[in-house]
Simulated scan of single mutants.
Amino acid sequence: MKTFLLLTAFLLLSACQQGGNEQSLLEEKQNDPKFKYVSDSDPIEKKTMTREEAAEHLAGLAVQVPDVHDATAVVLGDYVAVGIDVDKDLDRSRVGVIKYSVAEALKNDPYGKQAAVFADADVVERLRGLGDKIAQGHPVDALTDELSQIVARYMPEGPVNEEPKSNNNQDSIPEEEQKNLDQVENEQSYSD
């Protein structure tokens, strides 16, 4: 038993000694003139905000984009949705440009990086309703479900981790021609 305790103590001391060597190596490298260590000159600090404060902040950023008359935002967990109110007479391509501009304005903000931007009047009203429910203190789980349904309705959905189909031209060849090709291939491989 004494041997076991002695061996354990020796291993612990050895492990601590190795950690100290790694620290001294790091300090030596930092003092080496061949290496230049710099800190991040433009760090983005994420201010601690409540969901409501973050939503107001994002809506304020969206309103600063030209041709956006009003904006509303909802922040629930990982979901961030921003609804913008634009002139109803604008054509679809112009609305797309405005939505893109809002998304660009939000992407540099820590809370708006992954925001979904909507310009549909129905969605904007639903987002306003969600914001009101949040302010009234409704359960977040139900609101998150509603927000995810809104986002899923308008965002394209596709396979996320699906393996790509093989790039095999045999899939595009008619079956009869494929049999002929297989036969020719077999004849060539056995005719050595």
Rank of each mutant, 00 (worst) to 15 (best):
M1A: 12
F4P: 02
L5T: 08
A15C: 12
C16F: 14
Q17W: 13
G19H: 11
E22C: 05
E22K: 13
Q23V: 05
L25G: 04
L26Q: 09
E27H: 10
E28T: 11
E28L: 13
E28R: 13
N31Y: 12
K34C: 04
K34Y: 12
K34P: 00
F35Q: 06
F35V: 05
K36L: 12
V38K: 04
S39A: 06
D40N: 14
S41I: 05
S41P: 09
P43G: 08
I44A: 14
E45M: 11
E45R: 12
T48N: 13
T50M: 05
T50A: 06
E53I: 07
A54K: 10
A54F: 08
A59I: 06
G60A: 06
L61A: 04
L61Y: 01
A62V: 06
V63S: 05
V65G: 03
D67G: 00
V68Q: 06
D78R: 09
V80P: 00
V80E: 04
A81E: 00
I84Q: 06
I84H: 01
V86G: 03
V86P: 09
K88V: 07
K88C: 03
L90C: 07
S93D: 08
S93T: 09
R94G: 02
R94L: 09
G96A: 07
V97H: 09
I98V: 13
Y100I: 08
A103C: 02
L106S: 02
G112V: 08
G112P: 06
Q114I: 00
A115C: 03
V117G: 00
V117D: 08
D120W: 01
D120H: 10
D122E: 05
V124I: 07
E125W: 05
R126W: 03
R126N: 08
L130P: 02
G131M: 03
D132E: 14
D132L: 12
I134Q: 12
I134H: 02
Q136F: 01
Q136N: 07
Q136E: 13
G137F: 02
G137R: 03
P139T: 09
V140R: 14
A142M: 12
T144E: 15
D145F: 11
E146Y: 04
E146R: 10
L147Y: 00
L147K: 06
Q149S: 09
A152K: 11
R153V: 02
R153M: 14
R153N: 09
Y154A: 07
E157F: 00
G158K: 13
G158L: 08
P159G: 10
V160K: 11
N161M: 08
S166L: 15
N167F: 04
N168W: 09
I173R: 03
I173Y: 10
I173K: 05
E176T: 15
Q178I: 10
Q178K: 15
N180T: 12
L181V: 00
D182W: 11
V184R: 15
E185S: 11
N186A: 13
E187A: 12
E187G: 04
Q188G: 07
Y190A: 07
